[in-house]
Simulated scan of single mutants.
Amino acid sequence: MVDVFEQVEEELRSDRYKRLARTWLPVVGGILLVALIAALAWWGYQSWETSRADKGSIAYERGLESLQSNNPVGADAAFTQAAKEGNGAYKALALMQRAGIALDANRVPEAIAFLDDAAKANRDPLIADAAAVKAAWLAMDTASLEDIQARLEPLTGDKRPFRDFAKEALAMAMAQHGKAAEAKDMLTVLKSGLDTPQIISQRSELLIAAIDSGSAANLKAITDQMARAPIAPQAPPAAPAAAPARP
């Protein structure tokens, strides 16, 4: 009799396992399949990104070599290829180089467009914000104060790497549009800021003196000079290129 009960219990247990298997094996199999697809997709994406970075690096280096050889036409062609074939970082850096070439040829609107595209091409603020600040300087003589504020104010947050450069440019835009008192207030804060880069502290002091003396009535020469000056980063840029971007 005991053997009969044990046999019945074993059959019931076997049926229960079969039902569990029929219920859960498709679910487990589906999860494993999704995980496999995700892993393969990630591997494929990483391989694609690596390939794009390699292509961008080769074209970008060729562009730098052309610049060093005083061949802006060849450099622009190489940077165009780097922007087209490279990953986000190389695309941004190549567009910044193209902006520098356009600026050297006095094609300012074209340079601004390249910098705007560079700021959108990469999420790294060390690259994107540098391009955005540079574009604002170039646009300062032709754009409205509202446009310049829209460009610069998002870059002035505490965690933005070029916040002090953006604040300096914003103060200059205010001074240029007749808001000397507001500009002086911003420059005073920058001049005395403990974390303000020394170069900006020095420039702020000179600009405050210019505003006080009334010699800042015509700021076009100053803004032109700043638009063509390189931006010194507040932190080492994490750019993948062997040399920093020109603008």
Rank of each mutant, 00 (worst) to 15 (best):
L206R: 01
I199T: 07
A143C: 05
R19T: 06
K167N: 05
Q7W: 06
D158C: 10
W48M: 13
F165E: 11
I199W: 09
S215A: 03
I200Q: 09
N122A: 00
V2G: 14
W43A: 04
E9D: 15
E85G: 10
D147E: 08
V8D: 10
A132N: 03
A241R: 13
H177A: 01
Q149D: 12
L115I: 09
I112R: 06
R22C: 00
A99N: 01
L93N: 07
A21K: 11
A118L: 09
A35D: 00
R163F: 11
L152H: 02
A21T: 13
V2R: 15
T196N: 12
P197F: 03
A150F: 12
M172F: 11
R107A: 12
R163V: 00
A77N: 09
I112K: 14
E168I: 10
M186S: 02
A242K: 15
P236F: 04
V28I: 07
A77S: 12
A128R: 08
A111C: 13
A41F: 03
R151T: 08
A53E: 09
A175F: 09
A119K: 13
K18A: 03
K120H: 05
E49P: 06
R151D: 11
R160Y: 02
A53R: 00
G56D: 06
E49D: 08
A229I: 04
L207I: 04
A166C: 14
A111Q: 06
A119Y: 07
A150G: 06
I37S: 14
K18Q: 06
F165Q: 15
S14E: 13
E61W: 01
D76N: 08
K84T: 08
A35G: 05
A173W: 02
M172L: 06
R62Y: 13
D54A: 14
L155G: 09
E61M: 07
I31D: 11
R19G: 02
K184V: 04
I211V: 14
G157E: 12
Y90I: 01
G56Y: 00
Y60W: 02
T80I: 00
A105D: 01
A183R: 07
L190Q: 04
A139E: 09
A183Q: 10
I31N: 08
M226I: 06
G193P: 00
A38H: 00
N70Q: 06
R13H: 07
L67N: 00
T188Q: 09
L103Q: 15
L25A: 12
S47R: 04
M1D: 15
K120E: 12
A38N: 02
Q81E: 15
S14T: 07
V28E: 13
R203Y: 10
P154G: 07
D129P: 10
A82N: 03
